Amino acid sequence: MFSTNQVQNEHLLFSNSVSESPRRRPLRLQYTTICAPMVRYSKLPFRMLVRKYGCDLAFTPMIVSNSFVHSAKARDNEFTTCLGDRPLIVQFAANNATDLADAAELVAPYTDGVDLNCGCPQRWALAEHYGAYLINNAELVKDMVLQTRNRISDQKFLISIKIRIHYDIRKTVDLCQKAQQAGVSFITIHGRTLEQRKEPVNVQAIKTVKDSLNIPVFGNGDVFSLEDADKLYEQTGVNGVMSARGLLQNPALFVGYHYTPRDCVQDWLDISLNLGTHFTSFHHHLMYMLEKVMPRPERRVFNTLSSTAAVLDYLRVNYDLC
Rank of each mutant, 00 (worst) to 15 (best):
T33L: 09
A36K: 12
A310V: 02
R24M: 12
T260N: 04
L88G: 06
C55A: 12
S15I: 13
D174I: 12
K178H: 10
K52E: 14
S307V: 13
I163Q: 09
A36C: 13
R24W: 07
Q8A: 05
M289V: 00
G276V: 05
T148N: 02
R164F: 08
V203I: 15
G256H: 09
P37A: 10
K207R: 15
M287Y: 03
G131I: 11
I165N: 06
Y319F: 14
R300T: 05
S15L: 14
T308C: 15
A103F: 06
L248S: 01
Q6E: 13
D143L: 15
L57G: 06
Q180D: 04
S185D: 11
L83W: 03
E20H: 12
D230T: 02
A179N: 04
R47N: 08
E298Q: 13
I159W: 01
I187P: 09
R47K: 10
V114K: 04
L106M: 11
V69N: 15
T277N: 08
R40E: 13
G54W: 11
R47T: 03
E298M: 14
Y53Q: 11
M242H: 11
N117I: 07
V293Q: 11
T260L: 10
H129G: 02
L116P: 03
S243N: 12
T33N: 13
A309I: 08
L49R: 09
E139H: 05
E139T: 13
Q6A: 07
V145S: 00
T308P: 00
Q30H: 13
D102E: 15
R75G: 01
M62P: 07
G276W: 07
H283G: 01
L57F: 14
Q8L: 14
A205Q: 09
Y133G: 08
R296Q: 04
C264M: 13
